[in-house]
Structures are given as C-alpha cells and as structure tokens.
Write a protein that binds this DNA or RNA. Structure first.
Length: 357
DNA sequence: AAGCCGGGGAT
DNA sequence: ATCCCAGGCTT
C-alpha cells in the first residue's frame, strides 16, 4: 500500500466522519440515493432531504412505484432536478432489468441514468467493497494540491491526469474506507478556503505545502459573464386564496416542476390576462409587483410577478389550459405534493405575507 | 470543448 | 457579489 493511502486511512480511523445518515446502515440503494443527492451539493444541505426521501421511499421498489410528482416534491429546493427524474427512471429500470436488486457490475451501474464514472465508483466501493477510484470536487482539490497541478482541474488534460492519479493512489484493500476517507479529508481538512495543513496526514508529501503555495491550488475556473433574462410570472388567486400552478416541460429549467404561468414579455402576459377578462364577469384586481432576481449557475433571471386576485377557478382552467389550484404551495415543503422551484416558494411566501418588496 | 442544469453555504 | 459544492448529460 502506498504511503499516501496509508496516511489517509490512518487519519480516517481517528478523524473521519463515521456517523452520516447514509452510513448508519449501508446498502447499495441507500448509498446510491446519497451519492446522487450529494452531486454538486454540500453534506449539510443534503441531510434533511435525505432523511425525508428515505422515509418516503425506503426501497428501490417503493421509489419505482412512486409518481414522478411525488419524487420531485421531495427534491424541490435541492436543485438539478434531472437528478430526481433520473433517480426515478433508474429505479424503474432496476425493477425491470434486475428484479429490483441494485446491479453489482460496474458497467451495469454506469449505464443507469444519472450515474457517471465517479458516482459509480463511489457507490460500488462504499456499498460493495469493490476497487474503484472516484474523482469528485474533494479529490480534485486534494490531489491538485498534493501534486501541485497547474491549471484548472476541469480541463481535459488535467481531468485525465487526475483520474490516472486517483486510481494509482487507491489502495489494494479497504476500498470503502478509502473512498470515504479521501472525501472526508477534502471536506474537513483540505478545504477550499483556510485548509488545516497542520493536521493533514499527507502534508509531508504535499508539493503545494512544500512550496508554500497551497493557496494557488486548485486554480480557479475561468469565469464568463452571466446573461440576464426576464420572466413574467402570472399569479392567479381564486376566492379561496388558492394559487394556479402549471407543470413545466420535462426539458429545460425546472423540468417537471410546478410553477406560475410564465411569459417572456410584459405584453404577452397582459394579453393573456385580457383574454381571460374579456370572457369573465367577475371582478378582480391586477397588481404588478416589484421584480426580484434569481441567479442560476449560468444566468440571472429577473422575475416580474403580475398578481391577479378574485379569479374564477373553472373559467381560468378554460383560458389557461391544464393546471392545478394549490392551497399550501410548498410553504411547508414537508407537506407539499407538488415540486415547486425555490423562487416560486419565495414568491408564494411574499404573497401570503402581502409583502410587495 | 463548451454549454446546460439549482440552490445554498461560506466568504 | 463571487466561488464552489460527494457531477452528468447534451451538443
């Protein structure tokens, strides 16, 4: 066993994380769900989502039999909703192709939607003690410092180089512990800002530390300007205080989630409302609320709410097409049965509190 | 290779 | 406001 993995494992036994929710009882299914939720998402954020998800869907079969709406309702607020859709798809595939048993061959696991090279390695090493490397954000950071790797870790050559090193550093035993150990090291010692090099088990061999250049690695990702887009949200409220929601396309942002009818311009939004009013006899008040900004990883979205109260429920369905009149729209995500994007949750809260800010 | 896909924690 | 987080998929 190499000195690196020996040092990492020795540190892990004393200082690693051994009581995370998905570590309590280790099964491929439980590890799989955790790894998907943890993609691009911090542990602290995941924990409450994981607990709730596992309570509702304790087995592959339970997940496969659930509706997509139920799954996405559990994912609402977590982001990257394709993860939830793919998890659900994979569960159905596991029922159809593997009799409900999570596959144990690397190729079969890799073929499931939403599982790439790193996630497949993590699941099979942690849950089934197979020898596979991982290369997530933690490993990239640890290795780029240990090896003083110049340049962004996301570029092709560096990625290929790091995969090679990640496999080389993986020991010949204790595969589950090593996978967990290298991630724990990155998450608690070799952190992005203010790493604790004094307590690091591999500092003696760390080139960045030797050169006193820990701060230089990993190199920052080249940044690009985020475009600004606009969206008009038509907020329809009926006499009972229910709000009108429509399910979004599976393709594009917030795929499969429920949101307010959305228009790209002020004009198209008001035209739609005029079309409704021309056929309606009831009275209602239209108020254009102040806009607010929601920022994605790749663009800013300025949201302009157009709030109309006193809408006739059945009449609206005729004009606006398919939709649902929801009562408690994800104000409490514990009770929500529809998945709603974060800014919709925010806007609903503002409406309920009558805060036009 | 670059773009798409979220939301929040940390700074 | 910026950067990044237990990445993968599409073009």
């Amino acid at each position: 066993m190499s000195k690196f993995s020996e040092q990492v494992l020795g540190w892990f036994d004393l200082h690693g994380r051994h009581d995370l929710p998905w570590q309590k009882t280790i099964t491929p299914y439980r590890v799989w769900v955790s790894e998907i939720m943890l993609q691009q998402t911090q542990v602290k954020t995941v924990i409450p989502y994981y607990e709730r998800f596992m309570r509702s869907f304790p087995t592959v079969e339970a997940l496969a039999q659930a509706s997509q709406d139920a799954v996405l309702a559990h994912w609402a607020g977590l982001g990257y909703y394709a993860r939830g859709r793919n998890l659900h798809k994979s569960a159905m595939k596991i029922m159809a192709d593997f009799e409900g048993r999570f596959p144990e061959s690397y190729d079969d696991v890799l073929a499931l939607p939403g599982i790439g090279r790193s996630t497949a390695g993590a699941i099979l090493s942690i849950a089934l003690q197979q020898r596979h490397a991982i290369l997530d954000g933690n490993v990239k950071r640890v290795l780029s410092r240990y090896l003083a790797l110049e340049g962004w870790t996301g570029n092709k050559n560096n990625e290929s180089f790091l995969w090679h090193k990640a496999e080389e550093f993986t020991p010949i035993s204790r595969f589950a512990d090593y996978t967990q150990a290298i991630m724990d090291l990155g998450a608690t010692v070799c952190t992005r800002t203010k790493p604790c090099c004094e307590t690091c088990p591999v500092r003696s061999g760390c080139l960045a530390n030797q050169q006193d250049r820990v701060r230089d690695f990993p190199a920052k990702k080249p940044k690009k300007e985020k475009p600004i887009k606009q969206a008009y949200f038509l907020v329809l409220e009926n006499m009972e205080g229910k709000l009108f929601l429509q399910q979004r396309s599976q393709i594009g942002i917030w795929g499969g989630l429920w949101s307010f009818p959305e228009y790209e311009s002020h004009e198209s939004c008001l035209n739609k409302m005029k079309k409704y009013e021309s056929q309606s006899t009831s009275l209602h008040s239209l108020v254009e609320w102040n806009s607010f900004r929601h920022t994605f990883s790749h663009y800013h979205l300025d949201i302009f709410p157009v709030v109309v109260k006193g809408i006739d429920e059945n009449h609206a369905l005729q004009v606006f097409g398919n939709g649902e009149w929801a009562c408690k729209v994800a104000l409490n995500s514990q009770q929500a049965t529809l998945g709603v994007p974060a800014p919709v949750t925010k806007l609903v809260r503002l409406i309920r509190e009558c805060k036009n800010v």
